[in-house]
Design a protein around this nucleic acid. Structure first.
Lengths: 208, 208
DNA sequence: CTCTAATTAGACCAAGCGTTCTACATTGGA
DNA sequence: TCCAATGTAGAACGCTTGGTCTAATTAGAG
């Protein structure tokens, strides 16, 4: 019998249970039995749709990547029409995320922590996800006409990581607001630097 | 038979093996057997000196906390006599750490990732460690006479976390230098803010 | 020497793990 | 109606896990 990749009720339930459990309990901390119970699905169904537990993990990481990037992009687009405000909205998105009751840090940071070897397939998926996020942030910075947008995006991404783990290790530390404050300083200092004259420009570069 | 807490060759070997393996492979990813083999010690010795695997984990987290903070403080003290330079040296310490062949991120971030529940004893130890680190950074900022040193320390700590996970998930990303660059901007922007006049001060605050 | 504590080697155990297998029920199109 | 796909329930397998037990050996202090 071959493992089918087509979506079906059982497959969906498994993937959904996997998303919740792998994220909140960790991968090694989640047993196949726990997933089956949560999904309310027979043992055989798992191995009908996925090669193994590891196959289910890979599927989880892929949908998590897709969904998370979608959440962030949807949020910043909904947050404002102004492209600079959208950059700042990244950190409002974080604050929103952190306040969710099942927030357990970044699934990909956690996965990279569990599978420390950078050659491990799961670790590779994690760094690929981070590359995509960086790319999305670059796009936002470019849209806002921010100078040196690639370097800025790297800085903003680092702030994001810092906020995520700070809030994870020490919940309630308001790390999203902290990161947003730093981002503001970075962006303002960059705008100043880009100004041709030695004096601080009095009018702001963006329209509104 | 009672578990002895006094240091002895076998106990030391166990703790050392635990430090290496728990750090690089994760806690759940390290079996008792693997520790015994690495320590070159009999099974019984483990349970003579530690209540259980979890007891050994707790011991590991405590010595890791002690050692890591010691490493950082020793590094910044050795780096310079100038108290401001010592603040910046935090990120040189990170670069040094990242370049070590067994670098696997922060043991405490990893532990908090593995044990997501904030009530879990290991998670609590992790956030306690981060509180100590924050305190050490505060002390450095205060020594450098930096205005609003507690708030600044929080920012610098967030940068540190960001650098650590960035380098962990994506090795070779030069995250320590990136974080140091941001720290420089933060500190300079703070110094400007503290200056009484509207103009940018021309002479630097530190002597060298 | 002798007592005591530390250590060793390895069998052993119950529980959990991921995985496979068998057997049966449901269902929807050809 | 029949077929094939999809599902269920649950036993079973082989391996690993953390932890216990027994018995023998080592080594330092009085």
């Amino acid at each position: 019998m071959r493992t089918s990749t087509r979506p079906t009720p059982a497959r969906d339930a498994l993937l959904e249970a996997a998303c919740q459990l792998f994220y909140t309990q960790g991968i090694r901390g989640t047993s196949v039995d726990a997933i089956l119970e949560r999904a309310g699905v027979a043992r055989q169904s798992l191995y009908q749709h996925f090669e193994s537990k590891d196959g289910l993990v890979a599927a989880f990481l892929n949908v998590r990547d897709e969904r998370w990037c979608g959440w962030m992009n949807d949020f910043v687009v909904a947050a404002s029409d102004d492209s600079l405000e959208r950059v700042y909205a990244i950190y409002d998105f974080l604050a929103d995320w952190f306040s969710q009751s099942d927030f357990s840090g970044c699934a990909f940071i956690n996965t990279a922590a569990e599978y420390g070897n950078p050659e491990h397939p799961f670790h590779i998926l994690s760094s690929r996800h981070k590359a995509r996020v960086l790319n999305d942030i670059e796009t936002l910075c470019k849209a806002a006409n921010l100078p040196d947008h690639k370097a800025l995006a790297r800085q903003l991404a680092l702030l994001m990581e810092g906020a995520i783990v700070t809030e994870q290790v020490t919940p309630g530390s308001n790390a999203a607001a902290e990161a947003k404050g730093i981002a503001r300083i970075l962006i303002q200092s960059r705008s100043n630097k880009a100004a041709p004259s030695r004096a601080v420009p009095l009018q702001s570069r963006s329209k509104k």
